[in-house]
Design a protein around this nucleic acid. Sequence first.
DNA 1: GTACATTACTTTATGCTGTAAGGAGTCGTC
DNA 2: GACGACTCCTTACAGCATAAAGTAATGTAC
Lengths: 265, 265
Amino acid sequence: MVVFAGQGDARRSMELLWAPRVVAPRTGPGPKPGLSVEAIVAAAIDIADAEGMAALSMRSVGERLGRTAMALYTYVPGKTELVDLMYDRTLAELPSAFPVSSGWRPAAVASAGSLWDLHLRHPWLLQVSPARPVLGPGEFHVQETLLSVLAATGLPLPRVRWVVSALFNIVRGSVQAAAESRQAARETGLSEEDWWYARPALLGELAPDLSTRFPTVARLGEEGAYEASDDEPYLEREARLSFEAGLELLLDGVEAAIVKASGPR
Amino acid sequence: MVVFAGQGDARRSMELLWAPRVVAPRTGPGPKPGLSVEAIVAAAIDIADAEGMAALSMRSVGERLGRTAMALYTYVPGKTELVDLMYDRTLAELPSAFPVSSGWRPAAVASAGSLWDLHLRHPWLLQVSPARPVLGPGEFHVQETLLSVLAATGLPLPRVRWVVSALFNIVRGSVQAAAESRQAARETGLSEEDWWYARPALLGELAPDLSTRFPTVARLGEEGAYEASDDEPYLEREARLSFEAGLELLLDGVEAAIVKASGPR
DNA sequence: GTACATTACTTTATGCTGTAAGGAGTCGTC
DNA sequence: GACGACTCCTTACAGCATAAAGTAATGTAC
């Protein structure tokens, strides 16, 4: 299923990503195309947003457009490429205006927050990129945005790239937890709280020696951090806090690096 | 496919995770079992290690054990639970001895490195956990190990958890890049270098305005960081450097937090 | 105006997937 | 020896991506 394209396929899919109409509007014989790559990608994104990646099939996309699954193959080489397109088009949604005029740090926090929001709006993004780097304009756009914000730290660019990559990973990892919590609630019908509380109950029964085998984890469980909140679901709040805290830690590290670089002058 | 288990199924799968033999060795009538949950999980892990997650099917696992796919259902409720078991058993491989006697920081680096190695040995781990938290002994073991190392910072435990979570995300994210590079090379037949160089060539052709649209990215491309290495594949080395750098940044941030907490006394 | 090449889209078919249902054979207990 | 529990198998089904071939629509060349 996860297939790495050969040379020729790579060219075709790069063209789709970068050159919406390599071939101009279409002239010559044959029936007019009723669909378009963009329409197909948009429909696919709609499905993934609403029903999750599991509900995305060539059939379901075709159906939404009033066609059969096979009709899509006129426009798109295969499902893999379609998903790549979905991924890249969605990344392009990231806003780009994060002015560093009042310092790089607020801009970094704001851009990371936007990235978090983006992933929360389109949680299926998390199931895509594991496969392989897509290397489309959307991905470049995200890289450019984050890189330019953090370039304002004055650190050498290769180091900035590492910062960006760490930041990206922190966002993705923590938003995953938030997305999981939503999905679990939706699919089990259980509220997130019920689900969360049902597990420890089982655990206590099946592994009564838990607090001696994993003392620190147990201590963590006791030392609060489990206060309930009313409007924001528990797991989601935890994930957001973890994201914000991780980001702060990372940025503190960046500040330390700046001091270290310019300090002993 | 990604199905969240209901209440009853949750119990069954937790039993599998925690109580290898809730039912003692088997007495009573009927033929002796020729397989075991552990054997099945081991076979599945072998397949995933060698041929990737895409090659893992109930049929392929059964075949490796000289049975049909359906035979597995005597031992395991379904594929989802089997994957959960694979995941948790593999996490349990993480070494636990990271003495903090000579400071928390070397221990943190060492444990993160072990986690990196673990993921590189079993890259399919990255395709599993997106689904949902497994909550088995292996996962607890990892949490306990990392938490206890970073508890030595003296920070309050809830904050330590955020550190652990950020660290985990950095490892997972960067190891993904390394794993992708290996997989791409294996599946395309192209060497990693060829693959890596083929793309930019295409890019330059399809998007000649790349350096004006994404100036910072372009500048990054120019400012080196692309020196080749001989023994370690390029992308893999990049990923490892990014991992190490991200980790350092994070730990610098942790140190700053320690100072801040104990500083203004 | 008609033949033809080209294209959009459909139908049909193949080989995968996970797993439900029911049957065959094996064993311990009565 | 009969029974019931148990492992494992065969068969079957719905769903998946997609290959192959067919149908109908359209612009161009004659």
